[in-house]
Lab assay of single mutants.
Amino acid sequence: MQFKLIINGKTLKGEITLEAVDAAEAEKKFKQYANDNGIDGEWTYDDATKTFTVTE
């Protein structure tokens, strides 16, 4: 399945997509990506659109 991450950071904004088996795997990958890029914020997930959002 394809999942999307919307980044609303203080210095980094944008979207990325990835393939994952389920939402838990996608969340783990997205949070690792955010951590690697210094993004720390409030996370939400919309199951209907398979979209994660992180807002700093």
Rank of each mutant, 00 (worst) to 15 (best):
Y33H: 05
W43V: 02
D47G: 07
Q2N: 07
G14T: 07
A20P: 01
E42Y: 14
A48S: 09
D46R: 04
A34Y: 02
Y45W: 11
Q32I: 15
T11R: 06
A48C: 05
A34C: 03
D22E: 10
E42W: 09
L12T: 07
E25A: 11
F52Q: 00
Q2A: 12
A20G: 06
Q32Y: 07
T49D: 14
F30G: 02
G14E: 04
E27Y: 15
T11A: 11
V54D: 00
K10F: 13
F52L: 01
I7T: 04
G14Q: 07
N35V: 15
I16P: 01
F3R: 00
N37G: 05
T17P: 04
L5Q: 00
Q2H: 13
M1P: 07
T17Q: 07
T53W: 10
D36R: 10
L12F: 08
V21L: 07
M1H: 08
I16T: 15
T51H: 03
K4D: 04
K28I: 13
F52S: 01
L12V: 12
K4G: 04
T11F: 07
L18N: 04
A24Q: 11
T17M: 08
Y45D: 00
L5D: 00
D40M: 14
E15H: 14
D40N: 15
A24R: 09
K31S: 05
D36F: 12
I6N: 06
D22P: 01
G9W: 08
D46K: 06
G38E: 08
E56A: 14
M1W: 09
K28D: 05
E25I: 14
T51C: 04
N8W: 05
Y45R: 03
D36Y: 14
A26K: 00
E42I: 09
K50S: 14
E25S: 10
A34I: 06
E15W: 12
F30M: 07
F52A: 01
L12S: 07
L5W: 02
I7S: 02
K50N: 11
G9E: 03
F30D: 00
A48E: 09
T44H: 15
E19I: 04
I16R: 12
W43Y: 03
N35Q: 08
Y33A: 03
T53M: 06
A23P: 15
N35C: 04
F52K: 00
I7W: 14
L5R: 00
I6M: 05
N8T: 14
E15T: 08
F30L: 08
I39E: 02
Q32M: 12
Q2V: 15
K4Q: 06
D40R: 12
A23D: 05
K28A: 10
T55P: 01
D22K: 04
E27W: 12
G9K: 05
A24K: 08
V21K: 12
K10W: 06
V21M: 11
I16E: 09
Y33W: 14
D40H: 13
K50Y: 11
M1F: 11
Y45A: 01
E42K: 11
T44P: 00
G9R: 06
L12M: 11
F3G: 00
L5V: 03
T17D: 10
L18G: 05
T11C: 08
W43T: 01
A48H: 05
A26T: 01
A48F: 14
V21Y: 13
Y45G: 00
W43K: 00
N35G: 10
F52T: 01
K28V: 15
F52N: 00
